[in-house]
Design a protein around this nucleic acid. Sequence first.
DNA 1: GTCTATAGGTAGATAGAC
DNA 2: GTCTATCTACCTATAGAC
Lengths: 201, 201
Amino acid sequence: MGITTEEKILTAAREVFTKKGYAAARMQEIADAANINKGLLHYYFRSKENLFRAVFDKAFPKFAHQINDIFESDLPLFEKIEAFVNKYIDILIQNPYLPAFVLNELNTNPEEFVKDLLSRREKPNPMKLIMQVKMEMEAGNIKPVDPIHLAINVISMSVFPFIGRPMIQGLFQIDDAAYLQFMNARKKAITEFVINALRKD
Amino acid sequence: MGITTEEKILTAAREVFTKKGYAAARMQEIADAANINKGLLHYYFRSKENLFRAVFDKAFPKFAHQINDIFESDLPLFEKIEAFVNKYIDILIQNPYLPAFVLNELNTNPEEFVKDLLSRREKPNPMKLIMQVKMEMEAGNIKPVDPIHLAINVISMSVFPFIGRPMIQGLFQIDDAAYLQFMNARKKAITEFVINALRKD
DNA sequence: GTCTATAGGTAGATAGAC
DNA sequence: GTCTATCTACCTATAGAC
């Protein structure tokens, strides 16, 4: 069989943890989603917390690596921002569970979770982007801007629509089918917005 | 006594629900935080869900009202955006629990929660702001931009740093004391960023 | 109104047959 | 490895004394 039980569990767990959050997720529900018995969850992962960690540890490094590839590339600033936004939103489209997942943990035990995250070998590191912004600014090529606020602006605009998705869909009357299209359109909207804010005339 | 037991419960519940999320919050913990007995929680609010609703129903209308005052004001566009960002961030500084609170519910039962939210008499309604953006754009006063994306951009940049606070503090090495200062500085950073992106030269 | 004690239900984890 | 059955712990909610 190409797909192992362990993989089935990880996939099902990812779905349920995403939808419910860690505390509200039920081992029974994960077992049902994986079409296996609850006992098997413990056979493979011993505890709920272990299972959660396994899910997260599988997803996070992939994410961090793709992002850092862009941060550390030699692209000119505007192209780098465009590449970052495109990649970031693509990742989130393919893993819509990720932000809620992270945010949930971030709120239940912030210091421990962040400490663990930042101690990893592969973690998002926007410092090279921030230095690049500083250089362009000092060279007078872009309007003056605080690079940290800029970085947070870009990340905020990219991530938030995934976290607040149901709210946005409700407020602006966007149905499920249109949301994918909407998020793809956002890539260009964000990039142009940021470039307009930075470009000197 | 100026502070009733009911108020003590509501305050304690707000804290615990915020910190733990609905599912992980324990009635015992709320009782402890309020310095009262667990039985009293049920005497006053009958169930955990009722208590949660009471906490939320107390906070939400205040929030929505203040925001709508700005949306519906007659301020010119740039000033309205500035007023919105200032007010929004001020509210979140004073109620840092709110975003996590909303987001948590948003992820556990999205459709029901959003439906309830949007059925309320007082709810955030950005439509007037969006119409105003359309008008300024058609009059050629600002650069072309999709008003919905713009609205989401502004909201994203304001809210996200509160949701992702521990992450941002970790990534950029901002300690607790400096974070308030940082969020206050963000008001101006966001406003200027948006105006730069929109202003024609 | 406030407390203690406990009922009732559910979820995570384990044991043991196959 | 996979299943069923069960244990144990905990949490919401209630009952009842004061």
